[in-house]
Every structure is written in structure tokens, then in C-alpha cells.
Simulated scan of single mutants.
Amino acid sequence: MDMQYHWLNEPQNWSLDKDVLSVVTDRNTDFWQKTWYGFERFSGHIFAREVTGDFTFQVRVRADFTTLYDQAGIMFMADEKHWLKAGIEFNDDAPAIGSVLTLGHSDWATGVFPGEAKEFWMRLTRKQDSLRLQYSTDGQQWPLLRLSCFPEREKCAVGVMCCTPERGGLAVQFDHIQLTPALDKTLHDLT
């Protein structure tokens, strides 16, 4: 992994061995802006690098999600009030696939994950002011999770994230981290 990645809210316990990033979340970490709860939080862990222009970012995530709001996946951000996070989040007594788009206020879209949530893949493609978010149970087939507009900014950051609003101690591994030019596939191409 290239050394252009850096921590925002560095966890107390983490290691990078070859191309595997291992993290144990700190206590009561989270990302959220206002909606429903009223609070603002930006204390979760992000290991990211600066990006400009169009790109595709992809990663495999492994964790055992057991506690309300345990979460891990990817994050794309311009600043504390403008970001997208996506991955598995434990809620309603099960790990679910979901995303939160925050443009001043956070929204939350979630659904049933069709595989074993202890291992999954995430992919984000940025093309101008559009974000295409996909997930995979096997790293081969990539259903669409979200298509959204995100204000064009010259510089943003993309990387992996994890947090545990109700506890600490979620062990997460991130590997197969790739940042490439934007994949130029049709919207419903699942490869």
C-alpha cells in the first residue's frame, strides 16, 4: 500500500502488515450529522488519501459485527459536513448493507445483506459530480447500492472507515485496497 494514506482519528490499536490493515476500534466512535438524533459526530476512524478527479476505490473488509451500530467499510469525504460512508452496519439485530450520505445533514439507507457479512467488498466510482457505490459478497459480482450526486470539489479523500458508537473493540481487517482510474462501465454492468 502506498504511503499517501494517513489517519483521521487514528485508533489506539492498529497495524499495517504488507497490504493488510488491521484495526481495533476505540470506544464510542461515530460519524453522523444532525438528522433524527440532533447530534454531530466525526470521531470514527478513517485511513484515507487525497484524490482529485475521477477514480474507482475498492476494498475487501472482514469483521465480526455483533453490537448495535458496529460498522466498517469505505468513506469518501470533502470535509466534516460533506461525506459518504458505506459498508456493513449492525442494526435491527443483524448486519446490514448500507450507506450514509451527508451533505450538511446525514441520511441513512440500509437493507438486508445477501451473504455472510463477516467478509464483503465495497467499490466506489466517482465520475465528475456522480458517485456510484457497489458492494459484493465475492469480489466478482457487484450490485449497485447507491447512485448519488456529490458536489464537485477539487480535492477530497477516499479510504476505509470503521467505528463503534456503542462500544469499543471491533476488530476489522482491510485488504485488496485499490485506487485506479474510474471504471467506465455501464450502470448495470455487474462485473
Rank of each mutant, 00 (worst) to 15 (best):
M1K: 08
Y5W: 11
N9S: 05
P11V: 09
W14V: 05
W14Q: 08
L16A: 10
K18P: 01
S22E: 13
S22V: 08
T25L: 04
T25S: 15
T29V: 04
T29L: 02
T35C: 03
T35D: 07
W36D: 13
F39W: 14
F39Y: 15
F47S: 00
A48P: 00
A48N: 04
T52S: 15
F57A: 07
F57P: 06
R60P: 05
R60M: 12
F76S: 00
M77N: 04
L84Y: 02
A86W: 02
A86K: 05
F90A: 06
N91S: 15
D93K: 11
A94W: 03
A96L: 15
S99Y: 11
S99G: 01
W108R: 03
T110S: 13
G111L: 05
M122W: 00
R123T: 00
L124D: 06
T125P: 00
R126E: 00
K127M: 13
L131D: 02
R132K: 10
Q134I: 00
S136K: 07
T137D: 06
D138A: 10
W142K: 05
P143W: 12
L145P: 05
P151A: 15
E152G: 06
K155V: 08
C156S: 09
G159V: 08
V160M: 04
P165D: 07
R167Q: 11
R167K: 13
L170M: 14
A171Y: 03
D175I: 09
T180F: 02
A182M: 04
A182L: 07
A182I: 07
T186D: 14
H188D: 11
D189A: 13
